[in-house]
Design a protein around this nucleic acid. Sequence first.
DNA 1: ATACAATATTCGTATATAGCGATGCACGCA
DNA 2: TGCGTGCATCGCTATATACGAATATTGTAT
Lengths: 115, 115
Amino acid sequence: MKALDDRALAHVADYFRALSEPQRLRALNALRERPRNVSELTELLGCSQANTSKHLATLARHGLVSRRSEGTVAIYEIADPRVYQLCDIVCGQLAQNFAAQARLLGHSTPARSRR
Amino acid sequence: MKALDDRALAHVADYFRALSEPQRLRALNALRERPRNVSELTELLGCSQANTSKHLATLARHGLVSRRSEGTVAIYEIADPRVYQLCDIVCGQLAQNFAAQARLLGHSTPARSRR
DNA sequence: ATACAATATTCGTATATAGCGATGCACGCA
DNA sequence: TGCGTGCATCGCTATATACGAATATTGTAT
């Protein structure tokens, strides 16, 4: 029971870690629109192709995206839509923080981050 | 707009990173029951007091827990209940994975992961 | 078979951070 | 005032990983 809990805990931690890189979040966000190949994503992320491949491999390893080959092209797409649930929850929090900070600064909160 | 997006993205990534350590998840889980002081948590986590303090500082820095002093004692408690929403979503996924694995192994799946 | 294109992997470097022991600091008490 | 307790911080080591350049791999076409 304890061992299982430890494994489960490690699993959850790893899952969150997969979401803890801005580039990977950027990739997930780009895939929100439609499936994309590595070249496309490389351009969108603005980093090396090697790095893009590695980030995608990380996301795939954790089941967040799936990979499919079409000729020499590798097409990635979202495999687990719950990712967006997670992000939305965190973003809602972010919006609240921004609002709080804006209040502290005396700004009129610009109606941003409206989901 | 791009700069703001980058900041927001980094923020979200940092938030997930705060959740990407088993010990911190353990601490959050312990705080689910009730507020606790550092000594208590140190014992529950089974690590050094220094390490516990650092993990708690990380969680507090990201607004997940709050700190309050009572004499020489520091009491931490959950500041952001949405953490549990996040964990439940990931755990639901875990359960599904387990179920899928069990199915592959020919086990009768315990009717879980219903969402 | 050869050449080319798209992707994956390897290698090296730089940075972050988990972990511990030792130390610092603030508070309450004798 | 001096002491002990509880927590935070520092110094350090070990490990993980983001990143780019170079190289390997895979698939396609000629």
